[in-house]
Nucleic acid binder design. Structure first.
Lengths: 193, 193
DNA sequence: CGCGTGATTGAAACCCTTCAAGTTTAGTGG
DNA sequence: CCACTAAACTTGAAGGGTTTCAATCACGCG
């Protein structure tokens, strides 16, 4: 099975060997070339993804045609529209590969039976949910309370690796500012040093 | 026990009679007068609250001393800093009563044992988590993509009752704009009609 | 080489905030 | 119940930060 996934489950979720085997039988490995979609708006999502290698992004496109990146997912991150998977409703979001990316695919059935397959996994999943909420709340705070510069600094310190792996306009899209603004923010920051 | 809570559990969570009794034994009812704090920054939260009657708000205070309202909780809403309860870490948020408010208090132990007490309750709780995430994501979309007017319209259509029960500056604080701006937005909207 | 994509820069426009003042509303004590 | 005060809301003018639009530059790739 996917090595990163295995190590991740052992280390962070506390999944034991038997459970690991059970899980291994239930998931599949899949590779997507750069720019390939894993999910598009309107899909009723049946999968969650764990990034084994590579980098994904999840984003929406607003009525004016602008992309707003919700989340980046580098190695060892889960990504999915949990709302769509859980409620079986069409998603608002696109997921595509920023780099060639290998993912572990967890299907709906697996997610629902997770508690029977591995209690540790279910608990960890619950933990992830809480973490997700925290993350979103922090992001809202930043959007409300902070300017472009502070948001950018926060992003860089939080995701230093991602910052180097994506084009700047994607960072701008994640921060909710224009590429031009980000360019100016970076110029100011460079000047200060 | 608290009537709203009981009805809520039966109707929305599918909790049966036996479980209802068990739950009733584990929770307590408490009333807070207007302006009283239920939780303050720095607390390690041990409680979740269900609003039986009244109205609460959860908010943060930024370094400049400004309040940012995260969430309103009228009747039949749950509110808590799930992060703080789940991870046993000090919270960033304040919760206080906008009106005289009666809440059902669910303690940490109850939340952890919820799955043993009532499967239906645990499932419903999971559902709430997913809903919460959805909510936050939508709010982020609005903060990134929409101006003050659209955010306000969305708020009014989403929480018509809350809109009438809180002072305008609280609405502004929820929307992430100044009370002055909200006042101007409202003037424009009134003019249009 | 030439084309396309991404990054930069400048100027004007726009939205929202800030500050200051005035008006209305609500609550309180005499 | 009125008078007074504080809080909430409104309004205007000036300022700041970000966007928009347009032009330019840098780079990789067929």
């Amino acid at each position: 099975m996917a090595d990163n996934f295995k190590t991740y489950l052992e280390t962070f979720a506390g999944v034991n060997n038997e459970e690991l085997i059970l899980i291994g039988e239930r998931v599949t490995l899949k590779t997507f070339p750069k720019s390939r979609f894993l999910q598009q708006k309107g899909d009723i999502c049946r999968f969650s993804f764990f990034v084994e290698k590579g980098l994904l992004r999840m984003y929406s496109i607003d009525p004016l045609g602008k992309e707003h990146i919700i989340q980046f997912a580098p190695e060892n991150w889960f990504v999915s529209d949990r709302g769509s998977v859980f409620f079986n409703e069409p998603t608002e979001y696109y997921i595509d590969a920023v780099e060639d990316t290998t993912v572990v695919v967890l299907d709906e059935l697996f997610m629902n039976q997770a508690s029977e397959i591995s209690v540790a996994f279910r608990k960890h999943n619950e933990r992830l949910l809480h973490n997700h909420i925290r993350h979103l709340q922090k992001r809202i705070s930043l959007l409300i309370g902070a300017g472009a510069e502070e948001r950018y600094r926060d992003f860089v310190s939080m995701y230093p690796d991602v910052h180097w792996r994506v084009p700047q306009w994607m960072v701008a899209s994640f921060l909710g500012i224009t590429p031009e603004s980000l360019s100016r923010v970076r110029r100011e920051l460079a000047r200060k040093v």
